[in-house]
Amino acid sequence: MLSHASLPHAGGRMGRGGILPLCEVVAMIWLDVLVQGILLGGLYALFAAGLSLVFGIMRLVNLAHGDLIVFAAFLILVTVNLLGLNPFLSALIAAPVMFALGWALQRFVLNRVVGKDILPPLLITFGLSVALQNGMLEVFSADSQRIRAGALESASINLGVVTIGTLPLLTFGSAVLAIFILNRIFYTTAIGRAFRATSDDPVTASLMGINPRGVFAMATGLAMVIVTLAALYLGMRANFDPSIGPARLIYAFEAVIIGGLGSLWGTLAGGAIIGIAQTVGAQINPEWQILAGHLAFLAVLIIRPRGLFPRAVD
């Protein structure tokens, strides 16, 4: 019965009555769950791509990543409210601001602590995380906020078999595009070449005339552009407040690690796996949504401790 149900075909929906439609309804529910899960994974991949990029280049884990996403969401929100622009245009304005902040954060703070010892950067970014949360609480209060996207919030596309929300589809498409572009930058441009060389060996890169600190600052700036994109979709999709950063960081971490450290496409796959696990879990019992994502993470770690597509050697 299940094997039949998992092979729905267009004609079956009409013509036959009785029991069959029930099988098909079940199949379509699960297909729907799968699709929603993959699309949700796009959001997690956006949370994670910046983290993956920075880790891949300088082996630095930024514990404030989630809070920076929330900060960017507030930045977009303020721009929407002050200038009356739509969220996408506001994100376009927020992106260079976030790039500059990321660049400066790396240049003036994190560059002082990157190196062989991984503890100092963890402490600094943990401190930054706490400071950001408290700062945002002070300025924006603990109220939940939402970036209003008008008709887009409820728009959907009917594909016959499943109906998908326009916003989740746009999120996923943006994640794929962002990762595609990042990969192009990484593997086909001069700056990408400098990223890879510096990641391999910063001292030898400096003998090539490259300033590793400048490369690191560029990388963090670029990561903050992705963070802005993640913030845009996070803020339009759900309510946010200053305290939710660390939970986004966890999803991002899990996606990066499932995918394999330093692999951007792996990060997308990791996001999709967590997304699917969460929607499947929620389908079985709404309380299991979050737990199912974490369990999927643990399961992948047990089967493939280095993730699905590991790139980094250490």
Binding site: R193, A194, R196, T204, L207
Partner: peptide
Amino acid sequence: AMVPEGRKLFPSLSVEENLLIGGQVR
């Protein structure tokens, strides 16, 4: 310019990319 001891090629770069990066900045 330096040819460092132990060669120190960049493992993530192809031969041609290793050459190109030597002339990337200057």
